[in-house]
């Protein structure tokens, strides 16, 4: 699956799309593919202070449990409640399925993330 170029990526396999002062965060196709069938997403609490590079939430698949790291710092203002009922959405359409929206406390952090092209190269190196 192509990594959309309307957003930035982290080397920990999260994507981050900026909408004004809000960063919309999800996991990449590579991440969902590596995790295999996702059965549960432990969503962050709204109001949580996320820190760039620190744990944002936890996703559970049939074979492993992994942290999702926050690509930027700020307050979690909304979480995708749909994932409570239907966590498999992350497998079906990872780039259309967001996990959390973060009101950025330091928008410059976006600059330290990589582009779709760079991320594509990075993932190629892992395969």
């Amino acid at each position: 699956m192509l990594n959309p170029s309307d957003r930035k990526y982290s080397k920990k396999h999260e994507w981050c799309r900026v909408e004004g002062e809000i960063a919309v965060v999800g996991i990449t196709d590579f991440a969902q593919h590596t995790l295999t069938d996702i059965v549960f997403v432990e969503l962050p609490e709204v109001g949580k202070q996320a820190e760039a590079g620190k744990q944002l939430c936890v996703v559970e698949s049939v074979k492993s449990v992994s942290d999702v790291f926050s690509p930027v710092g700020g307050e979690v203002v909304e979480v995708n409640k749909e994932l409570e009922q239907n966590p498999g959405k992350l497998n079906e359409s990872p780039f259309e399925t967001w996990i959390a929206k973060i009101k950025m406390s330091n928008p410059q952090e976006i600059d330290s993330l990589i582009s779709a092209e760079e991320y594509g190269e990075f993932v190629k190196g892992l395969e």
């Binding site: 059965v39 549960f40 936890v58 698949s61 449990v65 942290d67």
Partner: peptide
């Protein structure tokens, strides 16, 4: 079983 230590490890 994903709750359990053999999968979730230190978490």
């Amino acid at each position: 079983q994903a709750r359990e230590q053999h999968i979730r490890r230190e978490k």
